[in-house]
Amino acid sequence: MNRRGWFLFALMCIIWGIPYLLIKVAVESVSVPVLVFTRTAVGAAVLLPLALRGGQLVVLVRHWRPLTAFAAIEIIFPWFLLSNAERHITSSMAGLIIAAVPILAVVMARLIGDSDQLNARRWAGLALGFAGVTVLVGPNLGVDDPWAIIEVLLTACGYAGAPLLTAHRLKGVPGLPMAAVCLAGTALLYTPAAVLTWPDSLPPGRVLAALAGLAVVCTALGFVVFFALIREVGPSRAMVFTYVNPAIAVTAGVCILGEPLRPTFLAAFVLILVGSVLATARQSIGEPVPEPAVPQAAVPR
């Protein structure tokens, strides 16, 4: 990987590692519908002109049904559930639970008939990953809000299922216009609830900064950098940053918000990370890894 590739990789680790921190700050003063509306509306306003300039939006018309389903399980419901959960649990906890997405994706792929074989290494990865989730979630069900933890787990299920939907029903659909349309549709859907729960007074500066960061940096800029990274290093290398995001989320929560760093967090993160790497490995050591199709379902968290 060249210097530009490393720069883009590091940037993606940060851009999609800090949403949990920003969400935690934003929900202090604004409702969840306002947060989701602001993030998606601004993101769509930035990305739609780029998609229109490329003339790719017309391709999406014949895919409106799976596109609607994708928006529902990747953005509409998950972003509400995650934001609502962070009203009750720490951003560190949320980021670590989301780290289980690769594990859940392997299980879901198997359930729908994925032809990939689960060898001993991948089974061991699944076992380690679920052990990590148990270490993380189990002791906290009686301490933190149990429904909030369930909301984040449901969010992780949505994030894991959306790529499978695109692989089966949206294969070949360009990613940038798909993201722009899904964001625009979500913004329209949340408009009535956002209007009804709009804050009576201007939120504090840190909340406004968090909303701006979510919309401009984590959503709009996140997509631009993500596709630039794919062009620079290829899709398989580009997706490695997803393993780093939870560490960024925990670091940001602990250092900036002063969230507690429990020993179980570290143990769970190691188990989930190692489990994810093993469970998602498709080739034996030493075999060449083919470049997969460009991941169309990557949406900033």
Rank of each mutant, 00 (worst) to 15 (best):
I112C: 09
C182V: 07
I23M: 10
G205M: 07
F265S: 07
A249F: 02
I150V: 09
W123M: 12
N2L: 08
L196N: 03
I97E: 00
R282L: 06
L128K: 01
I89T: 03
P204E: 03
R4N: 10
G161F: 07
V106L: 05
L266Q: 03
P146H: 06
L176A: 00
S115W: 10
T264I: 12
T242I: 11
G222N: 15
E74G: 08
A99D: 04
V133Q: 05
R3E: 11
P263T: 03
P174N: 05
T186Y: 05
L47F: 04
A10C: 14
A105Y: 00
V59D: 13
L271P: 08
V216T: 06
A252K: 01
R282V: 13
W147G: 12
A99N: 02
V135L: 07
V27R: 12
A267R: 12
H168W: 00
A41K: 07
R282N: 10
P204Y: 05
T186M: 02
A131E: 14
L208I: 15
A209Q: 04
R121M: 00
E259A: 15
N140E: 14
I97T: 00
G205Q: 04
W16Q: 01
D145Q: 13
S201T: 15
A160W: 11
M108H: 08
W198I: 00
A41R: 05
A41D: 05
L273A: 10
L165I: 04
R65L: 14
L183E: 07
V101F: 00
V250S: 10
S115T: 14
R110Q: 14
V250R: 10
L48I: 05
A298I: 14
M93Y: 06
N140G: 07
M178E: 05
R169V: 01
D116C: 08
T264N: 09
P246N: 11
D145A: 10
F265W: 10
V233K: 01
D114H: 02
I89K: 01
L202H: 02
L196D: 13
